[in-house]
Design a protein around this nucleic acid. Structure first.
Length: 609
RNA sequence: GACUUGGUAGCUCAGCUGGUAGAGCACAUCCCUUUUAAGGAUGGGGUCCUGGGUUCGAGCCCCAGCCAAGUCACCA
């Protein structure tokens, strides 16, 4: 007899007799999925059962107080060996080296890992060695969460270690963790597959400590920006995500529906028009860290939902805003890195003020040698051909200039650079330039070849604003899916008068990528959007179909194991063959359930819808 | 949306010209009883992403699909 089968048998009995009903109650449509588990998971469920039999609650309700972290101990113990002589700490069990009556394991808490020393006769001072021999050595696994009490010492090997006097199981883990090992900075069996890392980010966070670091940095970056803005007495606000008219940017929206209002709503693509209403309302400065949603392509720079910080300050202009951006980003860089120079890929980016400034025309002249500032649309079109920039007939003057810039300049701007004075056609919400006709007072900051922010002197002339919206409507009629919609309610607001205002939008995810030296937006989002995993067919429904045909639960599992994973495959099967297969599986797994009768199997198959 | 590459055990990956599915870690049993990715022995574990096709025979070849990564397009 094969040893593995015996364990399977036990596990099945556990599931069928004791835990099975609770598994079903968790998700009855996928009950067989719960049964279709790997051998290692069987062993863990078996260990769970044994723990319960020993009177140990694997999921205790009590709080577990800790008085120290792994990081504290590692940082301070070598300086003063009298410290940490009565510690209590909790975390996840990572590595284990069991040497008989003495064992070493690693405990990982939110701050890092520390080695634990378990000694049999200290854990179990009396005759009963169960808590060591059985519970610790056999029933605990990598991934379980425990709490320990003890004192800190240094082993012969020179490693700071907690000598455990008492431990408590805080949570039994039922699934094996990817085991990543490391020696002298070299990582073995790294958990690197991006799909798994993003879909099961918790695993990524458990086994890849550098990932935790990225999200710490992201949080500190946002904190630093918020502190900066609050120190200027601007008001942090919240505005609607669900908007009846989407606006404030050129993008395609997600559409949804409100039942009670019986109306279409959109997830915001920007919050600009709401923040400006607040400036109309009399605030001098408002900002929001806003999740925006754009129904467009995905790439390593684009996620369907992303975070933008938008700021509007009354009585200011875009020149003023440029200085604010420099000051703010420089401060953030210093807060995070202690220097203005940070590595990004194979480059070093320096955020020290002042940043380079080019007008868009100057940038194009700088990178292509062509002065387009006086060109007509036809001349521009010829220039694009000469430069090898692809265009189409729907593009007007502004779009052509933007194409040249995007194609020839943007990627080459590595150090933070302000690009100013954009064509009016591209910027329906920006104020016309005070001296340069055909342009608007707008700037973007480009860094590492990508836009990180966008700002302008906000258009507050309601007549001009209406005309600009109407031009957008015309673009929309010509088929531009990103053309803005006329927002009558917003126009009404600025007709009441909005002070001259400088507005800014900063892509938080993009900035986080630079600040954490991440190559992909997915690395700075906990849960980047992924296509839903395709489960094999419609499992839940099939199970219901099997149930509806009068097939008892245990046999449904075996039917799946026999390869009948869909109702139709079972429907087409030969009843005698199915009967033989089920009996074979029952015998092989030594299941403690009576064999079916041939006529039962036949009737099940006939009953399948 | 287009192209390229990939999908094999819980994890990381091999797999020859198409010929009985492999390793390391993890797991189990036993021995050992203070270790640093690592004590020893033995053992179990697979829908080779899915569905078709070619073939005596497919993890491998062909077609279609799914998922991911990269590049491009659109976009912040």
């Amino acid at each position: 007899m094969i040893p593995g089968i015996k364990s399977c048998k036990n596990s099945f009995n556990v599931l069928l007799n004791e835990n099975y009903s609770s598994l079903i109650s968790i998700d009855k449509n996928k009950s067989y999925m719960a049964l279709k588990i790997s051998e290692q998971e069987h062993f863990r469920r078996e260990a769970l059962r044994e723990l319960k039999e020993l009177g140990i609650n694997p999921y205790p309700a009590d709080k577990y107080d800790v008085n120290v972290t792994a990081k504290d101990i590692l940082k301070h113990f070598s300086e003063d060996k009298t410290l940490f002589q009565d510690v209590q700490i909790a975390g996840r069990l990572m590595g284990r080296r069991i040497m008989g009556s003495a064992s070493f394991t690693e405990l990982q808490d939110s701050t890092g890992r520390i080695q634990l020393y378990f000694n049999r006769d200290e854990i179990c001072p009396g005759e009963d060695k169960t808590m060591y021999n059985t519970v610790f050595k056999r029933l605990l696994d990598i991934g379980d969460i425990i709490g320990v009490k003890g004192f800190v010492f240094i082993t012969k090997m020179g490693e700071i270690t907690i000598h455990v006097k008492e431990y408590t199981i805080l949570c039994k883990s039922l699934r094996p963790l990817p085991v990543v090992k490391e020696k002298d900075g070299e990582v073995y069996d790294a958990f690197r597959d991006p799909e798994q890392r993003y879909r099961q980010r918790y695993l990524d966070l458990i086994v890849n400590p550098e990932v935790r670091q990225v999200f710490h940095q992201r949080a500190r970056m946002i904190q630093s920006m918020r502190d900066f803005l609050l120190s200027k007495d601007y008001l942090e606000v919240e505005t609607p995500v669900l908007q009846p008219i989407y606006g404030g940017a050129a993008a395609r929206p997600f559409k949804t529906y409100h039942n009670t209002l019986d109306t279409t709503l959109y997830l915001r693509i920007a919050n600009e028009l709401y923040l400006k209403r607040l400036i109309v309302g009399g605030y001098d400065g408002v900002f929001e860290f806003a999740k925006d949603f754009r129904n467009e392509g995905m790439s390593r720079f684009h996620n369907p939902e992303f975070t933008q910080m938008e700021l509007y300050v009354a009585y200011k202009d875009y020149e003023w805003m440029m200085e604010l951006v420099e000051e703010m980003i420089e401060k953030i860089t210093l807060d995070l890195h202690g220097t203005t120079q940070i590595p990004v890929g194979d480059k070093v980016i320096d955020f020290k003020r002042p940043w380079k400034r080019y007008s868009m025309y100057e940038a194009i002249e700088h990178f292509t040698g062509v002065d387009i500032s006086e060109m007509t649309e036809d001349q521009l079109r010829n220039t694009t051909k000469e430069l090898g920039v692809e265009t189409d007939k729907t593009m007007g003057r502004g779009k052509l200039i933007d194409e040249i810039f995007g194609e020839k300049c943007e990627a080459q701007l590595i150090q933070p650079t302000f690009i100013t004075d954009y064509p009016v056609e591209m910027s329906p919400l920006a104020k016309k330039h005070r001296t340069k006709p055909g342009l608007v007072e707008r700037f973007e900051a480009i860094c590492n070849g990508k836009e990180i922010c966008n700002a302008f002197s906000e258009l507050n002339d309601p007549i001009d604003q209406r005309a600009r919206f109407e031009e957008q409507i015309e673009l929309g009629r010509r088929g531009d899916p990103e053309a803005m919609i006329l927002d009558e309610d917003f126009l009404k607001a600025i007709e009441h008068g909005m002070p001259p205002t400088a507005g800014l939008g900063i892509g938080i995810d993009r900035l986080a990528m630079i600040m954490t030296n991440s190559n992909s937006i997915q690395d700075v989002l906990f849960f980047p959007q992924m296509r839903p995993e395709k489960t094999s067919g419609t499992e839940g429904n099939i199970n219901d179909e099997f149930t509806a045909a009068g097939i008892p639960e245990p046999w449904i599992t075996l039917l799946h194991q026999a390869g009948y994973s869909t109702a139709s495959t079972l429907k087409e099967a030969n009843p005698n063959k199915v009967f033989n297969q089920l009996c074979g599986l029952r015998k092989k797994q030594k299941l403690d359930i009576p064999a079916p009768k041939p006529e039962d199997v036949k009737s099940w198959i006939e009953n399948i819808g």
